[in-house]
Write a protein that binds this DNA or RNA. Structure first.
Length: 364
RNA sequence: UGGGGAUUCGCCAAGCGGUAAGGCAACGGACUUUGACUCCGUCAUUCACAGGUUCAAAUCCUGUAUCCCCAG
């Protein structure tokens, strides 16, 4: 029998998850803090892993332990390295191997935070798992579904990385930061009981690649050869040599190591022939895309053409579009061409502030 | 080894006697819970080299070196 008053909070040791735990405790929940051990890279200095962060931070166990003590809740450090490697790291490596650009945060949310950790919560008798994500989850009586809405702190909104969650998962998730209107407000609360923590900076890198060098990470952990190949223009002419497709993502300009007198961008990555196609800015816009592994939040599925907005990357403005399911894929046609539609990244659908669903962008 | 033309930042390129534009790249920073994009900033005391003429030369003159084209 799960206790609806009991909640497991995933705590990175950062500001957000700390305040999330604090708020829940204040609301009267029985709160247990859990720090997930996700990854260990002997190659990197420990200090790299000491930084704070949002949902993805590995941060330090010690910070998490300390604040739990201050808040007055039990704390456990649990090992999730196995599931993290299988569902996040391996996926991350495979995506690059296939010429795609992965979004590990989305995979981590789906499989680790809201699956593995949720299971653990249930084992401990807790009905809920909570995180420091910025998003609103609620139950809609009319739809008879759990729905997700953008956070009040709109500039920190993380719904983009949550489109993948199932009804079953949403039913058991609490996100106490939903109603805060800014990160500053969250920091203020943290400052009440831990000033040092409240000033930690936001994380912005891939949590298991804190030195930013994801190519180095792939070399150490990837188990495949990164082979040099040719740059092509959009007409099929060879322009020069590239350092291996994993070094590039659609829309990229910097680091091509080649100059044309005009800015040039990556337009396409062809893993089969190990090619990277370059073009001018105008060539990197696309009006439509196909996505797989589609999940809908607001409804079980959609029938026929459906008008909504879509984001093709975390920090994009939602763009008006028409979507339609075809078999198990979704076809997205934008009103205006979008820049750098990137295979492997998520396309996420919205109706105003509500999260409709999303999927993984395909190459063709 | 006859004739003609070139040689300015890693790349392209302005300048044509008055005290080195710009673009690309690179680097640094801002932004960013993925990868990117974007934005801001920094980037030739020096113009292939050596002399000379001028108050003053990358700009004119004389050699030297290298490259390209046309002739052999």
């Amino acid at each position: 029998m799960l206790d609806k008053n009991k909640v497991i909070v995933g705590m990175s040791g950062g500001v957000d998850s700390t305040v999330a735990a604090y708020q829940l405790k204040k609301m009267g929940y029985e709160v247990i803090g859990v720090n997930m051990r996700l990854w260990q890279d002997d190659f990197l200095e420990e200090e790299h892993f000491m930084k704070d962060g949002g949902c993805c931070s590995l941060s330090s166990v010690e910070d998490a332990r300390r604040v739990c003590e201050q808040i007055g809740i039990p704390f456990y450090a649990l090992d999730f390295k196995g599931v993290f490697k299988e569902t996040v790291v391996d996926y991350f490596i495979d995506a690059y191997k296939n010429g795609e650009t992965p979004n590990p945060c989305i995979a981590c949310n789906k499989y680790v935070k809201f699956e593995a950790l949720l299971e653990k919560a249930h084992q401990l008798g807790a009905y809920y798992v909570a995180t420091g994500h910025y998003a609103k989850i609620s139950y809609d009586e009319n739809l008879a579904r759990y729905i997700v809405e953008k956070a009040s702190a709109i500039e920190k909104d993380q719904t983009y990385a949550l489109y993948n969650l199932t009804q079953e998962q949403l039913q058991h998730i609490l996100m106490p930061l939903a109603e805060f209107t800014s990160k500053d407000e969250v920091r203020q609360i943290a400052a009440n009981f831990d000033v040092q923590m409240s000033q930690k900076s936001d994380s912005q890198e891939i949590c298991f690649v804190p030195d930013q060098d994801y190519v180095g990470f792939l070399k150490r952990n990837g188990n495949f050869k990164i082979e040099k190949g040719d740059f092509f223009d959009t007409d099929g002419n060879v322009l020069g040599k590239h350092e291996g497709i994993v070094n590039y993502t659609i829309g990229q300009r910097k680091g091509l190591g080649i100059t044309f007198g005009k800015p040039m961008y990556v337009v396409d990555i062809d893993p089969e022939y190990n090619r990277v196609v370059l073009g001018e800015n105008e060539t990197v816009f696309k009006k439509e895309l196909w996505a797989k592994d589609v999940n809908f939040i607001q409804m079980a599925s959609i029938e026929g053409p459906y008008r909504c907005e879509a984001k093709i990357r975390y920090s994009a403005k939602p763009a008006p579009c028409t979507i339609e399911c075809v078999d198990d894929l979704v076809h997205v046609i934008f009103d205006e061409p979008q820049r750098a539609v990137t295979p492997g990244q998520a396309v996420v659908f919205y109706q105003g502030s509500y999260l409709v669903g999303g999927g993984t962008i395909l190459r063709k």
